[in-house]
Structures are given as C-alpha cells and as structure tokens.
C-alpha cells in the first residue's frame, strides 16, 4: 500500500480546507445557528415537547445530520471534480496508486472535515439548548459512518458530474429534500400512516433516527435497522466506486 500517496492526497485536501476556512467551517456553523434561532427559539417555543424532549433539543441531531450530509457530499464531490475540471487528474491517474488509496485520501479528508464540522455544530448547539447524549460512543459511530458514506456518495457525484451545474443538482434536488423530509425537524410518527410508509423509503430517515436515538433514546425505527441501512448504503457506495475504477468510467476514456 502506497501510504505516502494517501498521506499526500489527504494533506493536500486538508490544506484546501485551511485556505477556505470561511466557506468550510464558518458558514455552516452560521446557518445552523440560524436554524436554532428560527426553529428552536422562535417557533420551538410554541411547540410542546416531543416524546419528553424539548423541541429545541429534539432538532439538534437532525440539524447536525443535515449539515453532515450536505457538507460531506459538497466537500468530496468538489475535491475530485476540481482536478477533473482543471486536468490535474492526469497526475493521479498516472501515479502508482490504487483506487482505494485515492478514495482513502479524498474521502478520508472530506469525512474528517464533516466530522469536525459536526462536532463544532454540536458544541454550538450546546450554547442554545440543553444537551444530553445517552450513548456518546454510538453517537460518534453514527457520525463517522454517515460522514464516510456521504463523502463516498459525494466522490461518486464528483466523478459523474460533467459540469458545475450537475455538481450542485444532487445536493440541492436530492439531499436537501430527503433531509427535510427525513425527520430533521419532526418525528415521523406525527405523519399520517400512508406518508409514514412512504417515508421509510427515504434512506435519511434511518440515519437521523439512529443518530437521535444515540442522543435521547427515542427513535422512529429500531437502532439495528438504522445501523443496517447505513451499512447497506455504505456498501452500495463502495461497490459503485469500485466499479468506477474498474471500468475507468469518466476517468480513463
């Protein structure tokens, strides 16, 4: 294994975050704070507790998840799309690195970024609402798993996209709606039965449910199912990436 290459890619990508600190860290933290002000303080004060948790606290896991998903996808897709756009990808393709080393470097850096961001948002939310974390280890596990999975998804999007427009389409038209409809701001038990069933086809439901369970021990679906679905999504992304590098899709032809 070419660890030096993994390290080179990882360091390179992390340096990019350092240069774009405003965009990478400050703006997601600011927008999350705005959600707290609007949903937590302004509207939340009119909403009674959900399953024994105050509304302001209830939305914390959902908000972190939302940022985690959008940031993982955005970071990872841009990280691999930009070298394709500028043409510097030639070097990556001609280097003695295997696909999993490339993925480890890019996805590792994107996931690291999201995890750090998630923890910062968690700390920020602690300033607005009282927080309790019932299972810190599980909370971290869901955080890491989700960050890795959606960074992989972002990596795939970055390879599939052939323009900046396509790079934006998936986060805007797919990730954001699925997150909003996946129970970031409500428990799916408040929905009519038909919509509850429909919602179960939304993969984000399982992520948020599992993550929220780690905080408050309340969940829309069982934790085992959440974990299973997250793993399934992870494996699907890994298989897609493997296929991309095996066939050279959008990279070598």
């Amino acid at each position: 294994m070419n660890l030096r290459a993994v390290n080179a890619i990882y360091t390179f990508e992390m340096a990019r975050t350092g240069r774009t600190l405003m965009q990478s860290i400050v703006s997601p933290v600011l927008s999350t704070s705005l959600y707290f002000v609007v949903f937590g303080a302004a509207i939340g004060s009119r909403i009674t507790e959900i399953e024994g948790v105050s509304y302001g606290s209830f939305i914390v896991p959902g908000l972190i998840m939302m940022m985690l998903l959008t940031q993982s996808v955005a970071n990872a897709s841009f990280g691999i799309y930009f070298p394709r756009f500028t043409g510097t990808i030639y070097e990556l393709l001609s280097a003695p690195v295997s696909f999993y080393e490339i993925v480890l470097g890019y996805v590792g850096a994107a996931a690291t970024k999201s995890i750090v961001l998630g923890l910062i948002i968690l700390a920020t939310s602690g300033l607005f609402v009282p927080l309790q974390i019932a299972h810190p280890a599980w909370m971290l596990a869901f955080l890491v798993l989700t960050a890795v999975t959606f960074s992989l998804l972002g990596f795939i999007i970055g390879i599939w996209a052939d323009g900046f427009e396509k790079l934006q389409i998936v986060p805007l038209l797919v990730i954001t709606p699925l997150t909003f409809l996946g129970g970031s701001f409500y428990s799916i038990s408040v929905l009519p039965p038909l919509w509850q069933t429909v919602t179960l086809f939304n993969p984000v439901v399982y992520l948020i449910s599992g993550f929220r369970w780690a905080f408050f021990e309340i969940a829309d679906v069982s934790v085992a199912v959440s974990l299973g679905m997250t793993m399934l999504f992870l494996v699907t992304c890994l298989a897609t990436v493997w296929w991309i590098f095996r066939t050279g899709y959008r990279l070598k032809n």
Binding site: N2, R4, A5, A8, T11, A95, V97
Partner: peptide, 13 residues
C-alpha cells in the same frame, strides 16, 4: 506544495 505533493503521490520519501 504542488511539487512535494507529486513526490508523495509517487510513494517517495
């Protein structure tokens, strides 16, 4: 940075 990156990518110390 970019030249050092290339060296790392090719697995050299």
């Amino acid at each position: 940075a970019t030249v050092s990156f290339s060296r790392g990518l090719f697995g050299k110390k």
